[in-house]
Write a protein that binds this DNA or RNA. Structure first.
Length: 921
RNA sequence: GGGAGCAUAGCUCAGUUGGUUUAGAGCAUCUGCCUUACAAGCAGAGGGUCCGCGGUUCGAACCCGUGUGCUCCCA
């Protein structure tokens, strides 16, 4: 078969994904094996995969594929999240484009559109997962609004309500004026912005009047025409549009500037509403003018002060962020427009003293990016304390391990220890409708359905056939996602079914650190509450994917690449490689297309190694060993066991080239063991680096060159078979990271009876130290000789005669062939004295003399030797200093001292050899 | 304001209980090569005050203190 010049991933990737699906390799059913379970963090149903997802899904696929190839019953559950706010916003936007206003639709009509939208776009995300090669069990695909899932959410809500853990009440919450819904505290992101502080005059009402008119209801009216003192106080505020909601002004009781005003009143500018001056320790004397306006309806701190001082609450904002009737002025204007107009009016009336820029933090809605408004509102809440305690314990006891632990444990702990009640109602239609039913008087009951609700209602309120109306609101998306690891296996709706009993708790959760509170902590709470057991054993946090300048990826910056474009350009394997190669757990990843290019080049390197091996396939020669020689080698092998050299497990017969095959076999075992340990520590990026280097350097650059036959020469059949076997092993090691090319190569190497995706890893043998060490010496000698040739401008093509001066000749006899091939030597001989007119180098304690037909420039050589000498002398000096330090010799461990002595002796020998060489030049 | 983490080569990062050399890798750079698998390549090389200062120790990239800078979380 003719193999193309370069590897082209496109058709190959599609072909294998289809094949794997058709074979059902990703399907999982409970059996006698140990399960390895991952539930995907469900992406938003109408979204697309961005680079953050790509990293996440790749990590999960690596873990799942590795488990599947290691004897586990691997189950990766895919799915998507209905994402109430985000999706509803998209559907509303889509309707708007069609000229349809959501307000003119009934709930049912709207939901019909929403489901249509979901049907149309919900699969995009799945097709991207396929492109990326994700080995998920498609038969288990779950959506958070599936019937059973919907029921589970309702069941949990009712259950928590009955346990007293869900309640309804008026609290200060964050309001999103664009989405027109309440938000949880977690859905508000604080951003540093440059705001303005406006210094506004509040007139002080004269004391006589204030004393008598304190209880006057129509205060604003009466004060208009009242005699006023010329005194005023100045209040700094960043929100002048809320002054109409002021119900007091407040200073610190210890502030001498203001405490004489005790019992007095001021007039709120523009509307001349009379409000009292109150005092509270909360006020910071040094901030602004030291006196604050108190607007309990629109600030959490003001709200608390209001409660304490029994102030009334005047809500001056509508749900859409415009000013309400209560504001009296600028009614219907947007809050920011109103701010400008009010500032202008204050200016005109001489009530604005000054404006000052200042840094402040503002809360923004995570979903709509609008400025969130603190607002008093009646909503549904989850009482968190009781749920938080077991969730905290599961992590602090080490039952659930977080990776990287040191970084996130403290964050997790802090949040759970200080957790506030969770606002779970949203004023939306897309989501699970809250199962509370009300009568006309606002009396309500909570039940799983209307029939049930009526029964309970009638009993509870001793009435009959009352008309009940269900709560209009839906539940927070996260109130459904926190059940994910349970309900994907129907663990809420059908407790104790065989799936939930087998797959739960899941093995690993892989997710972004940004949703540690939204999702991870709450899943642990739900798990502890409903399964009395952790939902997963390990949590692996990936970092955020940024661009190479370290900026967040965003649509505005246009620095967020399209996944499918990248796959088209480089192939899915290369994308997976590129994103994994530099992403240590928990650290942000600076995404650079250059690393995808590196991945593509790696593909190509593997492809070319395949081409080389296939070139040899037709040129196999039978083993040139007689049966007698074979027996001899086998007996040597037995001896080698005693010497610590790993015997080769014969694939076919042994050959004369067996140093290379033995060395590589051991190297392969060494790396396989190393990889295993890295997997256990979730150090996937490092594991990939090691495999990359094993394939590129050890296999391609060294091993294949060592066994490469001369031009058009045949290759020993046994060496060939071994090489194919090694290649298969390498592909297996790499498969979890780069599934497509490895499967393709596996099948191109030879006729296979199975597929790599499900091929089980063999347990690696313990590698032999001696042969690995010998391999290192060989590599070092080759590199050193090439270097000296390079530095002395000896052309690689030029033949050399190599003379080795060593006390350990046996180290070299078995590798002579490889050595001469690699440094282009026409002869190798051993010597006891320096060779005239040659280049000499030192490796360890052995000297190598390189004879060429070329005239040698001794200057270059001398320079190099002197440099080496200088280094060694410096080194020797530092070792001697250590050894001559009495306290070191007294205190250090014996083996450390021994080592230093050996270093000293080695350095001295080497210095002697170099000085000898220098004297002969 | 409270808390956490980080600072090692031009860039991105390893560096295990303090001692295997005067600190490693990949990418980038430089030099030489179109050598029959691969120029998306091969063979080599150069490059570091381990953020500053102080301490503990026979010995510190590593432990402690402190300063500086960056990132994240929370209010």
């Amino acid at each position: 078969m003719e193999l193309s010049k370069n590897y082209s991933p496109a058709e190959i990737e599609n072909k294998w994904y289809e094949h794997w699906l058709q074979k059902g390799y990703f399907k999982s059913e409970p059996d006698s094996r140990e399960p390895f379970t991952i539930v995907i963090p469900p992406p938003n149903v109408t979204g697309v995969l961005h680079m953050g997802h790509t990293l996440n899904e790749t990590v999960q696929d690596i873990l799942v594929r590795k488990a599947r190839m290691s004897g586990y019953n691997a189950c990766w559950v895919p799915g998507s999240d209905h994402a109430s706010i985000a999706t509803e916003a998209k559907v509303v936007g889509m309707l708007k484009e069609k000229g349809i206003d959501k307000n003119n639709l009934s709930r049912e009509e709207f939901l019909k559109y929403a489901f249509e939208w979901k049907e149309k776009y919900g699969d995009i995300i799945y097709s991207q997962l396929k492109k990326l090669g994700c080995s998920v069990d498609w038969d288990r695909t779950t959506f958070t609004m599936d019937d059973h899932y919907y029921k589970a959410v309702i069941k949990v809500f009712v259950d928590l309500y009955n346990k007293g853990l869900v309640y309804r009440g008026a609290r200060m919450i964050h309001w999103d004026p664009v989405a027109k819904t309440a938000l949880s505290d977690e859905e508000v992101e604080y951003k540093e912005i440059t705001g303005k502080l406006y210094y506004i005059k509040y007139k002080i009402v004269n004391s006589e009047l204030s004393a008598v008119s304190k209880e006057t209801p129509d205060l604003a009216e009466t004060t208009h025409n009242s005699p006023l003192t010329t005194d005023y106080i100045v209040i700094a505020t960043q929100r002048p549009e809320t002054i109409m909601g002021d119900t007091a002004v407040c200073a610190n009781p210890g502030d001498e500037r203001y405490n004489k005003l005790l019992g007095k009143y001021v007039l709120v500018p523009l509307i001349n509403k009379k409000v009292p001056i109150i005092f509270d320790e909360y006020v910071d004397k040094d901030f602004g003018t030291g006196i604050l306006k108190i607007t309990p309806a629109h600030d959490i701190n003001d709200y608390n002060i209001g409660l304490k001082h029994n102030l009334s609450i005047v809500d001056t904002l509508n749900d859409d962020g415009t000013l309400s009737e209560a504001a009296q002025i600028y009614v219907g204007e947007d809050r920011f427009v109103a701010r400008k107009k009010i500032v202008e009016e204050l200016k005109q009336k001489g009530l604005l003293i000054k404006e000052e820029e200042y840094q402040t933090r503002l809360g923004f809605s995570q979903r709509t990016n609008s400025v969130a408004e603190p607002k008093i509102s009646t909503q549904w809440f989850v009482r968190m304390k009781a749920l938080a305690d077991p969730a905290l314990k599961a992590v602090t006891d080490g039952e659930i391990k977080i990776h990287p632990g040191e970084k996130f444990l403290a964050t997790y702990k802090y949040w759970l220890e200080n957790v506030k009640d969770w606002c779970i109602s949203r004023q939306l239609w897309w989501g699970q409708q809250i199962p509370a039913w009300y009568d006309e008087d606002g009396r309500f009951v909570v039940a799983e359905n209307e029939g049930e609700a009526k029964k309970i209602f009638n009993t509870q309120y001793s009435t009959n056939n009352t008309q009940l109306k269900q709560d209009e609101d839906v539940l927070d998306t996260w109130f459904s996602s926190w059940l994910w690891p349970i309900e994907v296996f129907n663990g809420i709706t059908e407790p104790d079914n065989k799936d939930i009993n087998y797959y739960y708790p899941t093995s690993v959760l892989v997710t972004g650190q940004d949703i540690i509170f939204f999702w991870v902590a709450r899943m642990i709470m739900a798990g502890m509450e409903y399964k009395k057991e952790k939902p997963f054993s390990d949590v692996y946090f990936t970092g955020m994917v940024r661009d190479k300048q370290g900026r967040k990826m965003s649509k505005q910056l246009g620095n967020s690449p399209d996944l499918l474009d990248l796959i088209d350009k480089y192939g899915a394997d290369a994308v997976r490689f590129g994103i994994m190669i530099s992403s240590p757990a928990g650290n942000d990843l600076l995404f650079d297309e250059a690393s995808l290019e590196q991945g593509r080049n790696f593909n190509n390197k593997i492809w070319n190694a395949l081409k080389l091996v296939k070139l040899w396939e037709g040129r196999k020669s039978e083993s040139n060993l007689s049966e007698g020689a074979e027996a001899m080698i086998l007996s040597q092998m037995t001896m080698n066991i005693d010497l610590g050299v790993m015997p080769v497990v014969p694939i076919g017969l042994l050959s004369e080239d067996n140093f290379a095959t033995q060395w590589f076999e051991n190297r392969l075992n060494e790396v396989t063991i190393e990889i295993e340990s890295l997997y256990k520590q979730f150090r996937l990026s490092e594991a990939l680096k090691i495999i990359y280097s094993l394939i590129w350097d050890d296999f391609c650059s060294w091993y294949l060159e060592w066994i490469k036959p001369g031009f058009e020469q045949p290759i020993d059949e046994n060496v060939y078979n071994k090489t194919v076997y090694f290649f298969e092993q390498l592909m297996q090691l790499l498969h979890p990271f780069m599934p497509f090319i490895t499967e393709e190569i596996y099948h191109l190497l030879k006729e296979q009876t199975d597929d790599l995706t499900v091929k089980q890893f063999e347990k690696p043998e313990k590698p032999g130290h001696t042969i690995l060490e010998q391999g290192n010496i060989l590599k070092e000698v080759i590199t050193a000789i090439r270097d000296v040739k390079n530095k002395n401008q000896v052309k690689p093509k030029e033949k050399i005669r190599l003379h080795i001066q060593t006390e350990h000749k046996h180290n070299y006899t078995s590798i002579e062939d490889i050595l001469s091939k690699q440094v282009n030597a026409e002869s190798i001989s051993y010597t006891h004295h320096p060779i005239e007119n040659s280049l000499s180098i030192l490796v360890g304690k052995d000297k190598f003399f390189i004879e060429t037909d070329q005239v040698i420039d001794t200057g270059v050589q001398k320079e190099q030797l002197e440099k080496d000498l200088e280094y060694l002398k410096g080194f020797l000096n530092s070792v001697e200093k250590k050894l001559s330090n009495e306290r070191f010799v007294q205190n250090a461990k014996a083996e450390v001292i021994e080592l230093e002595r050996k270093k000293k002796a080695d350095a001295e020998t080497r210095i002697k050899i170099i000085e000898e060489s220098l004297s002969t030049i």
